[in-house]
C-alpha cells in the first residue's frame, strides 16, 4: 500500500479575545480546508511564514490537538473515529521532531533513557536488549556509544537534534513530521542534519512532512511542496513545478525574498474573515474582484494554486 497519509478538508479554529479586557471573541481560522496526500518514501515540504498554520497542521495530524472537522486517514484508518487503544498502537507509526531539541528532551534523562523509553513503552525490546538497540540507533544518527550516558546539557545543539531524530526512529515509524527541525541550528550543523534526513529517507522509506520557513532547505529535501498562507493552502505541486514555475503571488514573493530580492510593499494586516482572498492586502497582482470570493485550489495534480489570476 503506497499511501501513508491522506488529509481531507481539515479545519481548526482558535478563539482569541480581542484584548485582555474584552468579552468579544474573535475566531481565527488556523486551518481552513487543508487537504494533502502523502505516499510512502515521499516528503512533502510545507512552507509559509509564522502564523500560516504550518505547525497547527502538523499537530492536528498527530492529534496533539483535535481538528474541528475534516478527515485524517493514516495507513487507511480514520484517526478521528478510532478508539484510544487503537490510536495508541497507531501512534507508534507516527513520530514528530520539534524545532528546539533542548526543550523536547527531558533534561534529567540520559540519552539512553530518552531513546529506550519508546522502545520499552511499545514493548519492542526487553530491558536486556534495549542497550544494544539504543547503540544501534545512535550509530544510525551519527553518534557513538559514549553518548549513551550523556545528559542533554552536555551536548551541542546538533547532537541533541540527532538524539531527537534517533528517538523518533526507534519505533520504525511510517510517518515522520519534522517541525522546523534545522531552524535553530547553526549553518555548519544545519547541513549535517539535512544530510541525516536524506539518509533516513533513503534507507527506511519513511513518509515525511517537513515544515520549515527556509525555502532552500525545503527545496533540497522535499519531493512536493505545499505553500500555506493564513491557514489555507495557496499553492501545491512537485518541487520543480513550484520552484521553477511558481503561480501564486505569495509563492513568487517568498522565492524572490529567499533569493535576496527585496520588496518595498507592505500590506496592512487586515483580517476580513472569509470574504475574498486572504492574500489580497499584500498581493502585487490583485484585482478588485479578488475581494469578493475565496479562490479555490485549481490545476493539475502536479501543480495547483488558489489564485483568480490562474483560473
Amino acid at each position: 500500500m503506497g499511501q501513508v497519509l491522506s488529509v481531507l478538508d481539515l479545519q481548526r479554529v482558535y478563539e482569541v479575545k480581542r484584548s485582555v479586557f474584552s468579552v468579544q471573541k474573535e475566531m481565527i481560522n488556523a486551518l481552513n480546508g487543508v487537504s494533502l496526500e502523502l505516499d510512502r518514501g515521499k516528503t512533502i515540504g510545507i512552507v509559509g511564514e509564522s502564523g500560516s498554520g504550518k505547525s497547527t497542521l502538523a499537530r492536528c495530524i498527530l492529534l496533539l490537538e483535535r481538528p474541528d472537522s475534516g478527515t485524517i486517514l493514516f495507513m487507511g484508518r480514520d484517526l478521528l473515529s478510532i478508539t484510544r487503544e487503537e490510536l495508541k498502537t497507531l501512534r507508534k507509526q507516527m513520530q514528530i521532531i520539534f524545532q528546539d531539541p533542548y526543550s523536547s528532551l527531558n533534561p534529567r534523562k540520559k540519552v539512553f533513557d530518552a531513546i529506550a523509553e519508546p522502545l520499552l513503552f511499545h514493548r519492542m525490546v526487553d530491558k536486556k536488549e534495549a542497550k544494544d538497540r539504543v547503540i544501534e540507533i545512535l550509530k544510525d544518527v551519527g553518534l557513538d556509544e559514549s553518548f549513551v550516558n550523556k545528559y542533554p546539557h552536555e551536548m551541542s545543539g546538533g547532537q541533541r537534534q540527532r538524539v531527537a531524530i534517533g528517538r523518533s526512529l526507534t519505533t520504525e515509524p511510517a510517518l515522520i513530521i519534522a517541525d522546523e527541525p534545522v531552524s535553530s541550528l547553526d549553518v555548519s550543523i544545519q547541513s549535517q542534519i539535512v544530510n541525516l534526513f536524506l539518509d533516513i529517507k533513503d534507507r527506511a522509506d519513511i513518509a515525511m512532512l517537513f515544515v520549515s520557513h527556509d525555502l532552500n532547505v525545503v527545496r533540497f529535501i522535499s519531493d512536493e511542496i505545499m505553500v500555506m498562507y493564513r491557514g489555507r493552502v495557496v499553492e501545491t505541486g512537485t518541487k520543480d513545478e513550484v520552484f521553477l514555475n511558481p503561480l501564486h503571488p505569495y509563492t513568487k514573493m517568498l522565492i524572490n525574498a529567499a533569493k535576496g530580492k527585496f520588496f518595498k510593499k507592505e500590506g496592512e494586516d487586515f483580517f476580513d474573515k472569509d470574504r475574498g482572498c486572504s492574500y489580497y492586502a499584500r498581493c502585487e497582482e490583485r484585482k478588485d474582484s479578488c475581494c469578493d470570493s475565496v479562490p479555490r485550489l485549481t490545476g493539475s495534480k502536479e501543480h495547483m494554486t488558489a489564485c483568480f489570476r490562474e483560473s
Binding site: S156, G157, S188, I189, S191, Q192, V194, L198, N216, F220
Partner: peptide, 17 residues
C-alpha cells in the same frame, strides 16, 4: 551553495563548534 544546487547531498563541515 549546496542547498541551491543540484547535488544530492550537502558538503557539511564535520564536528561542532
Amino acid at each position: 551553495y549546496g542547498l541551491m544546487g543540484d547535488q544530492k547531498r550537502l558538503t557539511a563541515i564535520p564536528g561542532s563548534v
